[in-house]
């Protein structure tokens, strides 16, 4: 790798490293995907009435599965750095802390997207959805939702890096904060599957975009204060 910009260089190196570690162990991808599928299965059982599962529940189940299983990836993000105290080496490097944040968020986004790629067909089969009415917008909301989710989640995961009871505390503080994004994503997905008004869907998409931007900017700012100096 011969990237000149130091910021980009570090981000890429971190991402490359995380990706390689994940490819060797596959612990996050496997557990996350399987858990997401389980969540969907359990929910279909819960909503099963007379040989069919109402398609109305699809967006909710889909996004709950993503958020629940995505939490696994978030919990592992910095756990990996903490296990061998690598975080100290990362912090004691001529690197702006935000580069660490960006690369970690990027890795989480990629892992979550891979999981979603496995999840979508399963949801489509379980809920008897024939075809997607608006694939472009569906993909857009999927991306925007995942980005916002990972941006906030990575930040909280970094916050709790040394906390006891991290596995409990992370969802506890993370889910309320992410709630508006969840609402947006579920609503948008619902509209898309119901073949709803395009303007309405676009408005939800804009909303998700606004959420993403605000949290990425805040994340970059807060991350330095949280981890960089202590």
């Amino acid at each position: 790798m011969t990237v000149k910009n130091p910021y980009l260089r570090v981000t890429l190196a971190m991402f490359h490293k995380d990706f390689m570690v994940e490819m060797r162990s596959r612990e996050v991808l496997l557990t996350m995907t399987f858990f997401a599928i389980l969540v969907v299965v359990v929910f279909t059982f819960a909503f099963y009435v007379h040989g069919d599962v109402s398609r109305q529940y699809l967006p909710g189940v889909f996004w709950v599965a993503i958020i629940f299983s995505g939490t696994i990836s978030l919990l592992r993000t910095f756990e990996r750095e903490r296990e061998n105290d690598c975080i100290r080496a990362l912090l004691l490097s001529p690197t702006p802390p935000s580069a660490i944040y960006i690369s970690k968020t990027l890795a989480n986004i990629v892992f979550t997207l891979v999981m979603e790629a496995c999840l979508v067909p399963i949801v489509v089969v379980f809920f008897n959805v024939g075809s997607l009415p608006d694939p472009a917008r569906f993909l857009a909301i999927l991306f925007l939702g995942t980005i916002g989710f990972c941006a906030v989640g990575t930040l909280f995961s970094a916050m709790l890096i040394n906390a006891r009871m991290k596995a409990v505390l992370l969802p506890l503080i993370f889910y309320p904060v992410i709630a508006p994004l969840l609402i947006t994503c579920v609503k948008a997905t619902f509209s898309i599957f119901a073949g709803g008004d395009v303007d309405q869907i676009n408005r939800w998409l804009t909303m998700a975009l606004a959420f993403d931007m605000l949290f990425i900017v805040l994340g970059l700012w807060v991350f330095g204060h949280l981890v960089g100096e202590g």
Binding site: V177, A179, P180, L181, I183, T184, K187, R203, W204, M207, A210, F211, L214
Partner: peptide, 11 residues
């Protein structure tokens, strides 16, 4: 988060 929640739920 408050303004965001506000707009999201306003819709």
């Amino acid at each position: 988060d408050v303004p965001l929640i506000h707009y999201a739920v306003q819709m």
